[in-house]
Write a protein that binds this DNA or RNA. Structure first.
Lengths: 200, 200
DNA sequence: TAATGACTACAATCGTATTTTGGTCATATG
DNA sequence: CATATGACCAAAATACGATTGTAGTCATTA
């Protein structure tokens, strides 16, 4: 019922449409009929790709995090110093999320309220996977003698915890503040955290 | 309509009762009649101390933060190293809040939902005041040559941001996890932040 | 002068009729 | 034969009028 047979592009088209509908109407007022119409397929076809409306919304969020993970992964493997990697990764994890939801600020709270229990589960996974990526860079930096730390995974989790307050979750984007302000705050936190890691 | 003439103790008694009622019934089901009865005064007398039901709930939260601020202030003036002060203050700002709401975990979300807009305003103030206290310790540590940082106030704000994700706000306590887990996480974050500050 | 509780306006709740919509599946289509 | 579809249905959401409950006021009281 998931994909495999079905072309990825349709699934993606549905999620693209979801993003637009969410921005325009919010979660409750977005109907599957309208969504299908927006994509240009029949209602039943939507259910060839997703199990339920909730699953659509959650997959939409999944996709945002998936894209973030791709970016983090690329940064982690790039050819710069571990310090630069870490700084970019910290900022990206905040700003990519911000940019992904900025255009439907108003309806974000409603969406989150509707899927909170399930999302909570997934967030744990998201964070754990992100922590793992951070850990790999920490390990690299430690081996290179530029970072000083004990357990990479535990430190990775701490980096996640220390930047989580800046993510749009229960706090919608407008509650968090202007983009420039968030970026500034993220920079300051990242700076502090990096100083704590660097072997001076 | 606020206090001045009225004895502090009655106001406090109302807030004490509010804490109990909130734990037992939650915000909506807590009626002013019941609250007054719990305190042992007439309903009208409640309005001698507070302007509205919302104001009561907000004052209740204010009091929690007020107590925290008292504690932070005491720590900031105590006779230990700036490093120890800062670590204790970071942990206290998380754990005192956690302990203050732990006993009405279930109804916390509801309470927060009811007063969110007003609380948002106040939170800004809370955080700014806390940042100021942290800044004073940072300044002290800088002068003593144990901390290395640029702007104390800006760094203070970063410390607040970096620990905010661990506070019970939109995330209720049970969403955050067990007390021991939070404490562990807070410790790890505090450790990292302190390393970033210490001149090694 | 400070405290009270009867009082009121309005908000929340309820019961019911009506509409909308998430999800299914027999049928159509390529 | 495999995949897409939209008519269909049960269940949920909404509308609405009647009823109840409660926040906030204020004339009276002690």
């Amino acid at each position: 019922m998931k994909d495999a047979t079905a072309p990825i592009s349709t699934r993606d088209a549905i999620l693209d449409a979801t993003d637009r509908m969410l921005a325009r109407y919010g979660y409750k007022k977005m109907t599957i009929d309208d969504l299908a119409k927006e994509v240009g397929i029949g209602k039943g076809s939507v259910y060839l790709h997703f199990e339920s409306k909730q699953e659509i919304a959650l997959s939409h969020i999944d996709r945002i995090v998936e894209r973030l993970k791709t970016s983090l992964h690329a940064t982690a493997r790039s050819k710069v110093t571990p310090e630069k990697k870490l700084r970019k990764m910290l900022i990206d994890r905040v700003m990519m999320r911000f940019d992904s939801v900025q255009h439907y600020t108003q309806s974000l709270n409603e969406l989150l309220a509707q899927v909170r229990p399930q999302l909570l589960e997934r967030r744990k996974r998201y964070f754990e996977e992100e922590a793992r990526m951070f850990a790999s860079v920490l390990t690299e930096g430690k081996a290179a003698g530029v970072f000083k730390l004990k357990d990479p995974m535990e430190t990775g989790r701490a980096l996640i915890d220390a930047t989580n307050a800046l993510l749009p979750y229960s706090l919608s984007a407008w509650e968090l503040g202007e983009r420039a302000e968030i970026e500034k705050k993220t920079n300051n936190v990242a700076e502090l955290l990096l100083n704590g890691l660097l072997k001076r």
